[in-house]
Design a protein around this nucleic acid. Sequence first.
RNA 1: GCCGAUGUGGUGGAAUGGCAGACACAGCAGACUCAAAAUCUGCCGCAGCAAUGUGUGCGGGUUCAAGUCCCGCCAUCGGCACCA
Length: 800
Amino acid sequence: MKYDFSAIEAKWQKFWEDNKTFEVKIDRSKPKYYALVEFPYPSGAGLHVGHIKAYTGLEALSRKKRLEGYNVLFPMGFDAFGLPAENYAIKTGVHPRVSTDRNIAHFSEQMKKVGYSFDWSRVIDTSSEEYYKWTQWIFLKMFENGLAFRDTALVNYCPSCKVVLSNEDSQGGKCDVCHSDIVQLPKEVWYLRITAYCEKLLEGIARVDYPPYVKAQQENWIGKSTGAFVNFELKGSDEKLRIYTTRPDTLYGVTFMVIAPEHPVIDRSANVIKNMSEVEAYRAECAKKTEFERTQLVKDKTGVKLEGISAINPVNGKEIPIYISDYVMMGYGTGAIMAVPAHDQRDWEFAKKFGIDIIEVIKGGDITKEAYTGDGEMVNSGVLDGMTNKKDSIEKMLGFLEEKGIGEKGVQYRMKDWAFNRQRYWGEPIPIIHCPHCGLVGVPYDELPLRLPDVKNFEPGTDGESPLARIEEFVNCKCPKCGGDAKRETDTMPQWAGSSWYYLRYVDPHNDKEFASKEAKEYWLPVDWYNGGNEHVTRHMIYSQFWHRFLYDIGEVNTPEPYMKRTCIGLVLGPDGDKMSKSKGNVVDPLDVIKVYGADTLRTYVLFMGDYEKAAPWSESSVTGCKRFLDRVWGLQDIVVDGDYRPEFVSKMHKTIKKVTSDIDTIKYNTAIAALMTLINDFTASGKITKAELRDFCILLYPFAPHITEEIYQAQGFGGYIHDAKWPKYDEALCRDDEVEVAVQVNGKIKDKLNVSTTAEQDEVIEAAKALERIKAEIEGRQIVKAIYVKGRLVNIVVK
RNA sequence: GCCGAUGUGGUGGAAUGGCAGACACAGCAGACUCAAAAUCUGCCGCAGCAAUGUGUGCGGGUUCAAGUCCCGCCAUCGGCACCA
């Protein structure tokens, strides 16, 4: 009989759906397992093979865990708010609700064709009222706790999309959505105070099981540095200039100071600065540059000396000049630095250009050529002279600063607060009312959700306002506190809001009283394993780690961390080895693969194609290889005979069970499948397979290829369904063969092979090795220094 | 510049310090076929007719034994970056 994958796959997909096979409930008799994959943005393009690879990994794990007796929550949903749906609406007039629903239906159908064992009763849509009600609820909780606030700041603004973007969405000075250049505008915007959680986030990262590069990336993003704040007195003004430095040990080498062009001390000292017009001209020039441009001009330092004021170095009383320069940013530290040209390359370049003194305080380099940033003996440094250990010098200086009251230890973070509003339509309305008397007032909880009103025109306003601002019935409202006339906030939340807590909603998705019941949260949380794309490690993940930790702090969740373990998939590249993209025309459509080869082949291939965490190009011929493998699996039914494991297959079976079991747990899907291929090669070579061998072989293959194995399991009458079967157990003792071939080396070079019993003792094996003709010839007339036997592996005879 | 990862056949990739290249793709040869496809069998790192030699980015080291551990480089990829 031919392997009719289309019929088999349709049959079992219908069976699983009709019987709600993968719907789960709280069941305290079983251990729970929460496997989570990143939910997709339901774009018009449909599922991509990258999605398939991402979902199939934990899909295999989930199927296996169920057979091992776990109660597995493996949900799916849609991250449905966002700009593409809105831009599509602007272009075509189709309401985002309509296109989003259509796309969700399309994605769902595609996923069902792959045969995923998602619990479809728990599907969530972040753009649905039942869902965003709780996104708004969490926002209000943050507002109540002072973590959501408004501030005027220079914002990253995309002139093309007409939105304010977070730093995360404007990396490299380009808009993440349309890649236009970002400009900086002052605007009053909403922020979430993620910086209040820097320390807690760092603590959390230390606790969880993420790959080292993920932890490094997150830590880098938070960017903690330790150092000192030091106050410099100003001559010619009552002001003190406060700086942050990581190198307080070099304080004696300070020969000038630099402040950011926007630093407020400039305006406060305007009356004593003699060259204010020159200063203003420089400031105007800087304001024209984007932050991106400012950070690009690495070599050529510019700046203006502030005439009329100067600073006093607090450790030696020397008078030093103050400059403004755009290499100092207002957004980091205090916006002012102490410059140590001898030991900081940027300061050195500035000093060279402006003819400022360069004083060496650490010996070891040639400061006439470049700044010396290495270690060495301290000189010209008062209390520090003679010290050679950087750490000790810093400690000593910190003590000195504190004793004299001129500075103290300090910590800085690179991460900035999260700009949280967008002037667009297709997002969660921010549930805040602007009251002329009461200020900012939260929409009362019992009025949630604050519904996104219907609009006809999705174009953003020319002045950077949301389309919601044009809807008077929405904007005009009464203040919930004083009852007076008030106006609603018309901005919406950014794309990242809904995904910051979606894994929490899955545990109790239909609850209309709370975002999830206490019982469900306590049973299912935390997520045991979260798999997704590398690109989400800094934005989405840090955001959701922040939201989760906040919910933990207010007693809404029972674990401090949302995700216990994280893995990242490697990209699926096009057949040409380039990143798949429409413009290159190298995109592979998973549905095409299913049509020609079947879902089981597609699933097996995406896990077999290489190291799961590394990028690998798509190879049509390798897909064929996986199809051939499943054809051969199907063909096993022609050679099946009654019986238990044959003696010569006992250790092969046990070894394979062991390998597949551990490889699925450690994301080595490729070697698990390879082990099954090896085993089937052995069955074929032996000309038959017993019922017991076939049954267990099918169970081992089931996580990867569930349809074909369900079918064989049923056709062979193994009893019940494979999705209810027990995962086979292996016996360590039976994983060993009775006899093994060991390599025989002389001085580490392989000279011969020898068959020995696994139980043979060292002396016995070494004697047998020496007796081999080839070995005899090698050791003839030489002195045996030593002989080593590594059990079941090799013998090494060392001769002189 | 800083942080992290990776470097193995023609290709994707295997290898608790213990026989490098499992498994698969491609390739070659053969069987079946009028023929082709499919399928099956065998071969398949490099050099060499062979014996053999050589081989995991490069240079050292530790060890009876190194792809694996240590030291120093090089290259590629990813993240951050005038961050004080």
